[in-house]
């Protein structure tokens, strides 16, 4: 049984069947990519996983517990972190403060009333933030305001915030969308490093085949809201079903 089990998920938006009978099992320690053409339901599936959308039917269990109906912060506290398509960071705060927030969230939980605690006295948090910034090669940018950084650095920062929470499962929504080639390669390197060093289970939703094939050790292809193939990367490329889904059958 996998760390994340998705069973019989259905989701309709009016007349559109966004997800139909999705069954998916994410094994612990794998990097599982979900690919598919535009409109295949990838983002809808992700939004169901993080508690933003509620499916019409079906169940999602994480480590044996249902996470349906939980709020995003509750799901995060269970150990599921999310990286967004456009980096979501605290843009008016410094890099250091950004990571600090993630560390506090991990240590103190969803709410902590400590208006008179001095931030300067939080030695363990400071150490952890420094360590995280070293891990993602951002130690020299610690005092920069997040909004002023490049797209690649913002992604790096977002990753550092997610990693600071020691998640059990990392969900990545097109982590390299809109990035220059160099930034994309940097991100791939970073993700590889995370996988090797920490062995965090990852679910990646991605368009870019280069990214998918460099990282994933399992791929699920989604078409019209339903998984059509699930296999290891080497067998996906040659699968006729996949080619049909992407090229609409015109390929012969």
């Amino acid at each position: 049984m996998g760390i994340l089990e998705i069973k019989d998920i259905n989701k309709r938006f009016g007349g559109l069947q966004a997800l139909g009978d999705v069954n998916l099992s994410i094994e612990e320690g794998t990097v599982h990519a979900i690919i598919g053409p535009n409109g295949a339901g990838k983002s809808t599936l992700l939004n169901v996983l993080v508690g933003k959308l509620e499916p019409d039917t079906g169940s999602v269990t994480f480590e044996g517990k249902s996470i349906l109906g939980l709020k995003p912060h509750q799901i995060n506290q269970l150990g599921i972190s999310r990286v967004f398509q456009t980096p979501e960071i605290f843009s008016t705060l410094s890099v250091f403060e950004n990571v600090m927030i993630a560390c506090f969230a991990k240590r103190d939980g969803a709410f902590q009333l400590n208006p008179l605690t001095s931030m300067g006295g939080e030695k363990d948090i400071h150490e952890k933030v420094e360590q995280m910034l070293l891990d993602v090669n951002m130690a020299d940018k610690r005092n920069e305001i997040a909004a002023s950084m490049s797209r690649g650095d913002k992604r790096r920062l977002e990753m550092a915030m997610c990693l600071a929470q020691d998640p059990k499962l990392l969900l990545l929504d097109e982590p390299t969308a809109g990035m220059a080639r160099a930034d994309t390669n940097n991100t791939i390197e970073l993700l590889k490093e995370i996988e090797e060093k920490r062995g965090i289970t990852m679910v990646i939703i991605e368009h870019d085949m280069h990214v998918v094939f460099s990282l994933a050790n399992k791929i699920t292809v989604l078409a019209q809201g339903t998984p059509i193939v699930e296999d290891v990367p080497s067998k996906i490329k040659g699968n006729p079903k996949v080619q049909e889904a992407y090229l609409g059958g015109a390929h012969e």
């Binding site: 912060h73 995060n76 506290q77 967004f84 979501e88 960071i89 605290f90 705060l93 927030i101 969803a110």
Partner: peptide, 19 residues
């Protein structure tokens, strides 16, 4: 710090496990 984070980006804050 959390209050300032609320002003900047509530979405990220919620997905960082803060209510």
């Amino acid at each position: 710090l959390m209050l300032r984070a609320i002003k900047t980006n509530q979405t990220r804050l919620n997905y960082t496990g803060i209510n």
